[in-house]
């Protein structure tokens, strides 16, 4: 599995893909950071780095399908799926290898933004506890999105289709919370609370404000597990239906 993991991580750096995505990611973060700190005096509130993630969440998760679009779609198009399937690797190892590889790439991209808190410590005070908590929450949420993106990629052999449907899935996940708040939903309390209970965005609020709840963490881990399992089933099923 390690060989696959290594190859997957490398594959992001053969092409400009990883660099472009990191650049965009850092750009979004930086712009947001600048607007926050320049308006601090006006707003008279305490600034938190995690709030950047919460605020610009939508832009960040928009980048994730670009990382995941090729995972299975490309493998299928280039006929390399046969290679993976005819070696001792099983579907579990293939999916996990790819997932962990994207995890590492995502982690590296995220780590680039850590530069800002580091600089801030030199001139001010950073509350590390809440900072780490925010980053952890964002990482978990991101990995959930990665799992969803991988599932979408396993449905098709076209990267572009995988990216577009991946974005659509991100939109759905993002607006789930907002949707549970609308008037129509308010009249159906069961449906509304159910929707907001499974909305990953609500779970992030705790992390973003520096409150670590085990239940939130368990939620994300379950979320990831469900989508990875679904991906494995989808990959396996495609093998049966091929032709």
């Amino acid at each position: 599995m390690f060989a696959l993991f290594k190859k997957e991580v490398q594959s992001y750096f053969y092409s400009p893909l990883a660099y472009v995505i990191s650049a965009l990611f850092v750009l979004i973060y930086s712009l947001s950071f600048i607007t926050w700190i320049t308006s601090l005096e006006k707003l008279n509130l305490q600034f938190s780095f995690a709030a950047i993630f919460y605020d610009q969440f939508f832009y960040f998760i928009f980048l994730i399908p670009m990382l995941t679009m090729k995972t299975f779609a490309e493998e299928r198009r280039a006929n390399t799926e046969v290679l993976l399937m005819s070696t001792p690797l099983n579907v579990f190892k293939i999916v996990m290898g790819k997932f962990l590889a994207i995890g590492l790439v995502f982690f590296m991209i995220m780590a680039l933004t850590f530069l800002y808190p580091l600089i801030t410590t030199m001139y001010g005070e950073v509350r590390w506890g809440s900072l780490i908590c925010g980053y952890l929450g964002f990482f978990l949420w991101g990995m959930g999105c990665v799992a969803v993106g991988m599932l979408v990629s396993s449905f098709t052999e076209n990267q572009i289709i995988a990216a577009i449907f991946g974005e659509a899935a991100m939109l759905l996940l993002f607006f789930m919370d907002g949707f549970s708040q609308i008037q129509w939903m308010q009249n159906k309390p069961v449906l509304s609370s159910l929707l907001s209970a499974v909305s990953p965005k609500v779970r992030f609020e705790g992390f973003a404000t520096g409150v670590f709840r085990l239940s939130d963490m368990v939620f994300y881990i379950l979320f990831i597990t469900v989508f990875l399992a679904w991906t494995m089933i989808s990959v396996e099923k495609r093998r049966w239906n091929r032709g």
Binding site: F2, A3, L4, K6, K7, L83, L84, T87, P88, L89
Partner: peptide
Amino acid sequence: KFVAGIKE
């Protein structure tokens, strides 16, 4: 080398 890796 990658193939050698996945073939264990």
